[in-house]
Write a protein that binds this DNA or RNA. Structure first.
Length: 236
DNA sequence: CCCTGATTCGC
DNA sequence: GCGAATCAGG
């Protein structure tokens, strides 16, 4: 890959927006963050708008939300941050940071568009098999980690379910972990890759919470994705 | 650890 | 000019 005019332009723009070198590298493709940094220096694009109040990248801080650590289940599950579903993810937009790509925190998820085969130019993260609706378990179930290998389709119910959790449409004061809502390029090897919302929407995000070991999901979503199957037939 | 950006230096 | 290796910091 070479630094074509377009690529340099994109680099300049993204860098100006405060994106990290690794993110830019991921976006550009074919380059490492080192290359990006090196190029940035050569272009003398240094010092970005960082003076005074910087809020770096668009990453919502879970800590900025009224939390309530409640353990409904006897089993003390050390979840990250737990929030009583209520406020629609208040994103304290800093000052002077016109980020065109940053969609509003609109919780609205497109009415389940048909899962068109969007060209995955990057690795497509493993989608969770459509998890059946799961009511808050009063007690722990025997963990029988097994994947219900289902088709890669997102059921509207799944999205609605997630949506309800994240943005608190539950009346019963349901307590759920707060997702970090990361974009694709922000995912790393140990971030939860549970999708949130419509993959075709610019609002599409991933949970992004810390995932245990090599698990693709955080504790919370792993429990949804890997459910004990009682009546499961051998798939042969 | 994981992530940043900064610098160096052989190519 | 380029970018991997390295360094320094949060």
């Amino acid at each position: 890959m070479s630094w074509t005019e377009e690529r340099i332009e994109l680099l300049t723009r993204l860098w100006g927006e405060g994106r990290s070198a690794s993110q830019i590298a991921a976006e550009l493709g074919g380059v490492t963050r080192n290359a990006v940094i090196g190029k940035v220096h050569r272009l003398k694009l240094d010092n970005r708008p960082k003076g005074g109040s910087d809020e770096s990248v668009a990453e919502i801080t879970p800590a900025a939300i009224p939390v309530a650590v409640a353990a409904p289940s006897p089993a003390p599950v050390p979840e990250p941050v737990v929030v009583v579903a209520q406020a629609p993810a208040p994103r304290p937009e800093p000052e002077a940071a016109p980020v065109p790509q940053r969609p509003t925190p609109a919780p609205s998820i497109a009415p389940a568009a048909a899962p068109a085969p969007a060209a995955p130019r990057i690795l497509t993260p493993t989608l969770p098999s459509t998890p059946p609706l799961r009511a808050p378990m009063p007690q722990r179930q025997p963990m029988v980690h097994s994947i219900g290998a289902t088709a890669l389709k997102m059921s509207p119910e799944t999205e609605a379910f997630e949506d309800a959790q994240i943005f608190g449409h539950s009346e019963g004061g349901e307590v759920v972990p707060m997702s970090r809502n990361l974009t694709l390029v922000q995912l790393s090897e140990r971030t939860c890759k549970w999708p949130l919302g419509d993959p075709l929407s610019p609002d599409f995000r991933f949970c992004g919470n810390h995932s245990q070991d090599s698990s693709p999901y955080c504790k919370h979503h792993a429990r949804i994705a890997f459910q004990p199957v009682s009546e499961r037939r051998r798939v042969r």
